[in-house]
Structures are given as C-alpha cells and as structure tokens.
Write a protein that binds this DNA or RNA. Structure first.
Length: 500
RNA sequence: GGCGCCAUAGUCUAUCGGUUAGGACGCCGCCCUUUCAAGGCGGAGAGACGGGUUCAACUCCCGUUGGCGCUACCA
C-alpha cells in the first residue's frame, strides 16, 4: 500500500438525514478503516436554493447518532478544509478558468428558453437529449467580450465526439460508455457556483480521495468525471457504485412509500447499533449465519468487490427482528437507561404532565392518557375515523395536505403545526373544529386526547409524518393524480396576517 | 425514446462449471409455558424466459422479458 486510503461521504444538506446517506457513509467508513485509512465528510451545498444549515446540522447529528465518525469534516476540521463546498467557490472558479483556458470547456450563453426548446425538439424527433453544441462555435475573443459585458453564461465541459470511455468499477468491472452519449455538462452555473460534477472532482482530488464509493445513480456521470480528471491532469480515484436501497415494491427508496429518515428510526426506538448492523448486512453478508455483528467485525468482513449488486429492499421487518435481538442482549439496567434517555427525560415528562393535569381524575389516568406519546405507529383503521363530520375524500385531503405542508416547514414547533393545520382548514373551506377530530385520531389514536398541537410537537416531525402516512394508508392512500391536484391547492397566503 | 446497471424463495443472501442449491427474516407446525412473547425443534418456499458453449450450467456467452438508475444552471 503506497498511498493511504481516503474515502468520503458527501451529503447534500437539502432535507432530512436519509438512511441512504448512512448506508453510503458506512461503506466508506468501513472501507477506509479496513485499509487503515481516513474517512471524511464533506458538505455538498452548491445548490443555494435548496441547501440549509439546519439540514446540515441534522445530517451530522444523525450520522453521529448512528455511530459513525469521521477524521475530517466541517465540524472537526482537518488539513484539507474547508469541508463545505459553499466556502470553496474561489477554488472551483480557478479550475473552471483553467479548463476554459485549455480549451477543455467553453462558455455557453444559451437561455433556458432556448435549451427548453432544444430539448422539446429532440424529444419530438426521438433523438438523444443533450446539448447541441450551439455555443461551441463562439470564437474565444467574442466569448471573452460577452462575458466581460456582463452577459450571463455557464461553463460547459467539452466531450469528444467519438470514442469510448471505459469506467472501471470496483464491483462491476469495465463499463464502456460511448462519448457520443455523454452530454456537455454544465460545470459552472450562471451564479458562479459549480455543479456537483466540477466541485466533486476538484474536491476529491484536492482532498486526496483514493476511493470514491457512492450510489449507483452516479454511474452514468462517471465518464464526465473521468474526462475532467484527464483534462486537469489528475489521477482518478478508484470508483465503486453501490446499489440503491429500495422500497418493498423495488422502486428507489422514497419517503412517499417508506420512512427514510434516520431520525425516524431513532424516534421509533431502534438502537443505532441495530440500524448500522442492518445496513451492514446489505453490504457484507456472512456465508453462514452470524448476522449480528458490530462495527469491528463488519470492517473485517467487508469486501466491496464481492457485494451483491441487486438493489436491496429496505426490509423493516428484518430490522425489527435485529433490533429485538439487540434489545434482549441488554441488561435490564441498560434497557431501562436507554429507554429513559430515549423518551422519558424529565423535561419531556414535565411538559406531558402539564398537558394532562387538567384531564386526570386519578393518578392512574395519566399513563393511559399519555401513552400515544410513547408509541410508534398507531393501529388506526378507517373505522377509527367514524363519526367525523367529513367525507372520506375530505379526510384524506385534510390528512395529505397537512402532511405535505408540514414537510415543507423548517421548524416544527406547536405554533408551526397550528398555523399549518388551520391553514388546511382554510384551503378546504372547513371549520378547523371539523377537521380536528381527524387529526386527533391520526395523531393520538382517539378523538379525545391531550392538546393536539402540543402533542404533535412532542411527537416530533418524524413520528407525525409516519402517523399521517399510516392514517392515509388506512383510507387506501393518495393516487399520483390526486397528489398533483391537491398539491396545487393554494396554501393560505403568508401575508394575510396568519403568520403574524 | 436514448444510454447504463441489475436478475437465486415474499425479503436479505451463500454458491464463484459437478451441491439433496446452504443460511437469515417472515410464514406454518410442534415443544416449553397460567396467557402472550422470548427460546428450542421441524416444515413449506428459489435459480425470470429462450438459445448457445461444455461430458456437465444457477454459475460462462447471446437474445428476450422485467426491475432500477441517468437523461437539469439538483445532487
């Protein structure tokens, strides 16, 4: 081993921490450790519109909760920083300029409208959809002049017109791609920030990443990346594409069909070591039995070149079994300590007691009244909703809109919940009073319970989302068509005072 | 549509030319047990299809079908 192995996970902070991120992180972490190398975490926040600091914090916290740690990263620092791409703009610009100067890239002044029209025409003609090279013909001087005059442009990479790019994948072997099918990817957006492709290649090189282990969705951009390494005169890392986690119906794991948030599993009461073990099972399987193992053993048995390439279904049933095994292996003291830390902290108990106090007549009433706050999924059926003043479709709509709109909120305090739920009432033209019963049943399992908004805050976003999903499923779910129609329903205007 | 990846039971997988195709989850049954779990024991259940290559194919090759991904100034 001449150069030390270095791997990384590079999440984009655009949403809730995803189990897929933990899966990729685990593979990278274990691979690096197996070879005595370093694992680092980099934040890919070049999408200004969608990236948020809250999401970044949540992702780091969730990965730490899962039991993963990194040698370098935005929170722990390191010699190759900064580890947040938004803080590295000048670096990308420099290489973009170099590519421009070398003639490996060119400025493209095409408007979004022209590109749309171009794609529409290509679709109609049935030809491959890719950039047509319109701005390739612009002479360098003119390109310079137009850029200097302030005309908006992007930088695109050039791609050979013919020939084949062979991608060496650690698990799949050689995968050939015709250059003719590779698009002239945008490297630098008109806002001056890089796209994933440029930032990724530059950072992986500068951070001395030796093995890029990432999701299979990147497979088809590998030729672009390899081309960039070549243009920049750099040695490309070893590539390895991991199969994607799937829903039970084999589609790519999505939160519409499944809980995908790491924090959901935490709130459901899964142990991090069980979740990691479960993910590890999808990456390295023991020939004979022995499915329960910790990180050290996992590192030892991992062999990415032998990984099973079919996308594995994220089988929650198996996770349940595994988690049960871990729970039973705990001493009673440990089990109790873990349970207390998980959902019975004193502060939380105090809040619950405050909510319940006016509703109890005996001390024995308290635990039953608050039970739903300590449960995971509720056993609600369509019958649970009987007695509401709304029709089935109205209830489904009320449930679905609340779920989607809550998803879109950054915060999850009771005020947020109240505003959103009441807003749904306005949208539907219903008194919130009539909607409330539906929400009570979905959230607490009963039409009468502790105050709704406080309870939802206490439950937390992940459990709330799952309860909405379960309630909706009890009604048969929402069709794709309905989803489109309903999401188009105007949310109450924030300017009309509701937010004040 | 184009390009690419993938294909063993419902699910996760072992096998790397010669096996009664092994294990785990789930399911079913039995045992244990005041119930229910847990635990123990047992059972049902798989090589997508069609061609090759070979003495021999789940395993290698080709095709078909199916699933998935990519096809953005998102990652």
């Amino acid at each position: 081993m001449t150069t030390p192995v270095r791997t990384r996970v590079a999440p984009s902070p655009t949403g809730d921490p995803h189990v897929g991120t933990a899966y990729v992180a685990l593979a990278n972490y274990a691979f690096a450790k197996k070879h005595g190398g370093d694992f680092l975490l980099r934040i890919e926040d070049t999408d200004q519109a969608r990236s948020t600091p809250e999401s970044e914090r949540a992702i780091l916290a969730a990965l730490h909760w899962a039991g993963l740690s990194w040698d370098e990263g935005p929170d722990v620092g390191g010699p190759h920083g900064p580890y947040r791409q938004s803080e590295r703009s000048a670096i990308y610009k420099r290489y973009s300029d170099e590519l421009l100067a070398n003639g490996h890239a060119f400025r493209c002044f095409c408007t979004p409208e022209r590109l749309d029209a171009m794609r529409a025409a290509q679709r109609a003609a049935g030809t491959p959809q890719k950039y047509d090279g319109h701005c390739l013909a612009i002479p360098p001087e003119e390109s310079e002049r137009r850029a200097a005059s302030g005309e908006p442009y992007v930088v695109r990479m050039k791609v050979p017109e013919s020939g084949v790019c062979v991608v060496h994948d650690l698990a799949r072997g050689d995968v050939p791609f015709e250059y003719a099918t590779v698009d002239m990817q945008v490297l630098l957006k008109s806002d001056g920030l890089p796209t994933y492709h440029l930032a990724n290649v530059v950072d992986d090189h500068l951070m001395e990443i030796t093995h890029v282990i990432r999701g299979e969705e990147w497979m088809s951009s590998a030729p672009k990346h390899l081309l960039l390494y070549g243009y920049l005169g750099w040695e490309p890392p070893v590539l390895m594409h991991l199969p994607l986690l799937r829903n039970p119906d084999k589609s790519k794991l999505s939160k519409r069909k499944n809980p995908t948030g790491i924090l959901f599993y935490e709130r459901m009461g899964y142990l991090p070591e069980a979740l990691l073990n479960f993910l590890g099972l999808l990456l390295a399987h023991a020939p004979e039995g022995q499915e329960i193992f910790g990180l050290p053993e996992f590192i030892e048995r991992l062999d990415l070149s032998k990984i099973s390439l079919g996308g594995p279904v994220f089988d929650i049933g198996k996770l349940d079994w595994l988690n049960g095994q871990y729970l039973r292996a705990l001493s009673t003291d440990e089990l109790l300590a873990r349970t207390m830390a998980w959902g019975f902290e004193r502060d939380r108990l105090v809040r619950i007691a405050e909510l319940a106090q006016s509703r109890v007549e005996r001390l024995s009433d308290l635990a039953p009244a608050a039970g739903f706050l300590f449960a995971g999924r509720l056993a609600v059926t369509k019958e649970s909703f009987a007695g509401a003043k709304l029709g089935d479709d109205e209830m489904r709509k009320a449930l679905a809109l609340a779920m989607w709109r809550l998803d879109a909120e950054r915060a999850f305090e009771k005020e947020t919940v109240e505003r959103v739920l009441k807003g749904v009432g306005e949208t539907l033209g219903k008194k919130f009073r009539d909607l409330a019963r539906v929400y009570y049943v979905a959230m607490t399992g009963s039409p009468t319970s502790l105050p709704l908004f406080d309870s939802m805050e206490l439950l937390g976003r992940d459990i709330v989302r799952e309860r909405f999903r379960v309630a909706l499923a009890a009604f048969g779910g929402v069709s794709g068509k309905e989803q489109k129609e309903w999401q188009a329903l105007q949310a109450p205007d924030q300017t009309n005072g509701a937010a004040a």
